[in-house]
Amino acid sequence: MSELRMVELSAATIVAVNNLSLKPGQEQYLAPVSYGIAATVINPQTSWQRVVLDGDEVVGFVSASFDPEAPEEHFRSVLWRINVDADDQRRGVGRFAVDKLLEEARKRNMDRVDVIYEAGEGGPEAFFHRVGFTPVGETEYAEVIATITFAG
């Protein structure tokens, strides 16, 4: 693995992001990438979409939102989705993306980042626990709300 870097989603990377592969069973936990990308068009002021590159190869995608005015606290600084290509999972790509997201949240004076996910075998729960998210509640649809809280 060469040095990972993160860039904004662009016309040059969007096709590769849409073609990121998943491991069997993961598709049930993710809406199509195009749903996450559409958020940029709908909420360009609050949407944060980044692509993880390993050299020149797209290996991951992260979509988040920063909206201090959101009526529900868990939507103010939220990780909406993280995709790491199946062949690149368990190599630190996801942790790298989450670390960069936390850096961005701190720059924006947020004191936490939340994630909402569906629990289940083969789902993202173990990953979110490994990178530091702690469950704090549930949505009305029985999805888990987890958070990473930090000072300043």
Rank of each mutant, 00 (worst) to 15 (best):
S2A: 12
L4R: 01
L4Y: 03
R5G: 06
L9N: 03
A12Q: 09
A12P: 01
A12Y: 04
T13Y: 13
T13I: 06
I14W: 03
V15F: 05
A16I: 03
V17C: 04
N19E: 15
S21L: 12
S21E: 13
S21K: 12
S21T: 11
S21W: 00
G25D: 09
Q26Y: 08
E27G: 15
Q28W: 03
Q28D: 12
Y29T: 05
L30N: 11
A31H: 12
V33I: 10
Y35H: 12
Y35K: 12
G36R: 00
A38S: 10
A39K: 11
A39G: 08
T40G: 13
V41A: 10
P44N: 13
Q45A: 14
S47P: 02
S47Y: 00
W48T: 02
Q49D: 05
Q49R: 00
Q49W: 01
Q49T: 04
V51F: 01
V51M: 06
V51Q: 01
V52T: 07
V52M: 08
L53K: 03
D54F: 06
G55W: 01
D56K: 14
D56G: 11
G60Q: 02
V62A: 05
V62P: 01
S65V: 05
S65W: 02
F66M: 08
F66Y: 08
D67G: 03
E69R: 11
E69S: 13
E73V: 14
E73R: 15
S77H: 01
S77K: 03
V78D: 02
L79P: 03
W80S: 11
R81I: 07
I82Q: 02
N83K: 02
N83V: 07
V84D: 00
A86E: 05
D87A: 14
D88L: 10
R90Y: 11
R90Q: 12
R91D: 14
R91P: 13
V93C: 05
V93K: 00
A97K: 01
D99T: 14
D99F: 06
K100S: 07
L101Q: 00
L101D: 00
L101N: 00
L101K: 00
L102C: 09
E103M: 12
E103R: 09
E103H: 10
E104C: 08
A105H: 04
R106V: 13
K107T: 14
N109V: 06
N109T: 04
N109R: 10
V113Q: 02
V113Y: 05
D114E: 08
I116A: 09
I116R: 07
Y117D: 06
A119V: 13
A119E: 15
A119H: 13
A119P: 15
G120F: 12
E121G: 10
E121F: 11
G122T: 08
G123W: 05
G123H: 06
P124N: 08
P124M: 11
E125V: 08
E125H: 12
A126P: 03
F127E: 00
H129G: 03
R130G: 11
R130W: 10
F133S: 02
F133T: 00
T134Q: 15
T134R: 15
P135K: 14
V136F: 06
E138A: 11
E138F: 15
T139R: 12
E140M: 10
Y141L: 12
A142H: 15
I145Q: 05
A146L: 04
A146H: 00
T147G: 04
G152D: 09
